[in-house]
Nucleic acid binder design. Structure first.
Lengths: 193, 193
DNA sequence: GAGATTTTGGACCCGCAAGTCCACTTCGGC
DNA sequence: GCCGAAGTGGACTTGCGGGTCCAAAATCTC
């Protein structure tokens, strides 16, 4: 199945339309017909571009959303070489999730395609890349003498990623951003010594 | 609707059977017939004890699981008055979630009844109680001069709860317990100054 | 032990949403 | 402009699973 430019555009439109739909209040209740409606497509198109159906489409959407997660943290995440840039990054993360509020599209997706092999891979990859970026930042700071050498950069990066997940989890259930903020504060405080 | 002893036993059997089922690999795919099978009950019983159906039953299961979360941390969580007891608590938390692995019954449930008003309340209550217990522990330590007074006990307790959520979230997706452990290490380390 | 009430069995209904199918249209290359 | 391939529309099928219903059995109350 080779896709023409038009076909590719349609496929992308479906993905983005589905993504928009999955950011609604009830992501679990989203149906293919809903997506069909909002994207102005037909059933045959959905199965034309995603032959194995809903599952495949939702996985694509998950990839799409996962990419956005890191993209939304740029350019800060890519250049964590001063305490100011760390601060800017921290603020960007908090702002992003505060804006997102209780609707976490990625969480909603993972809940639905949770049992599909590919799903675990999507989030695992996201977490790994995230951790890698942070680890690089920490090492940079260590190289400049801003973080003491005794800190295990990889391990600490993992802790920060996990901390953000937890802050977001709490935000999702309680609507409060405070835990996310205080957690980041403590963790970055730990880096600063 | 008054329940006799027998009725209550049946109701409880249904809840526990459903809970067991929801700890499977595919919690989202659990059906009433599955539960009917494993609990040896009939359709009419399910609706007899949970008149508004699946949603109500699953909410009960969520409450059931939420209670277990804190219960599994006892007696440590209730007496956080020495660094040894904090350490024992930390170990208990890690052990519990390590044993549980990727199957987090509560997360699975919240994902399914996510749009139900009562569901948010269940997890919010759990988080609040959890935080309260930790906050008391921190204050106790402050009273004994083991934690410096400048620490905001409530805020710190919230951060710890969130940290655990994140560690568990990572554990669920990657299967690794390391981030949970390092996060708790850093957070308790922060308390110790 | 009689009558009310609760508990239980399981057949049945029904709507929804995923997935299929085929005819039609549009596009792209030569 | 022709032909094959890609794109599109939408009716239709199908199975699954939540929910209903009624009648029978067990249980409680007096």
């Amino acid at each position: 199945m080779t896709l023409t430019a038009k076909g590719l555009a349609t496929k992308q439109r479906i993905i983005e339309g589905a993504a928009a739909h999955l950011r609604s209040e009830d992501p679990a209740g989203v149906t293919l017909d809903d997506i069909r409606d909002t994207t102005g497509t037909s059933k045959s198109q959905l199965f034309h571009y995603f032959p194995s159906g809903k599952e495949e489409l939702f996985l694509e959407v998950a990839r799409f959303e996962a990419d956005r997660v890191l993209a939304d943290q740029q350019p800060h995440l890519g250049s964590l070489d001063t305490w100011e840039s760390w601060e800017a990054w921290r603020a960007a993360v908090v702002a992003r999730y505060r804006a997102q509020g209780a609707q976490c599209p990625l969480a909603a997706l993972m809940a639905q395609v949770g049992s599909v092999p590919g799903a675990a891979e999507v989030s695992t990859t996201l977490l790994r890349n995230w951790q890698t970026e942070l680890e690089r930042g920490i090492r940079t700071m260590q190289g400049q003498g801003d973080v003491r050498p005794g800190v295990d950069a990889r391990r600490m990066a993992g802790a920060i990623v996990a901390g953000i997940q937890g802050g977001v989890a709490v935000l999702r259930t309680t609507g409060r951003t405070e835990p996310l903020e205080s957690l980041l504060e403590v963790l970055i405080g730990y880096l600063r010594g």
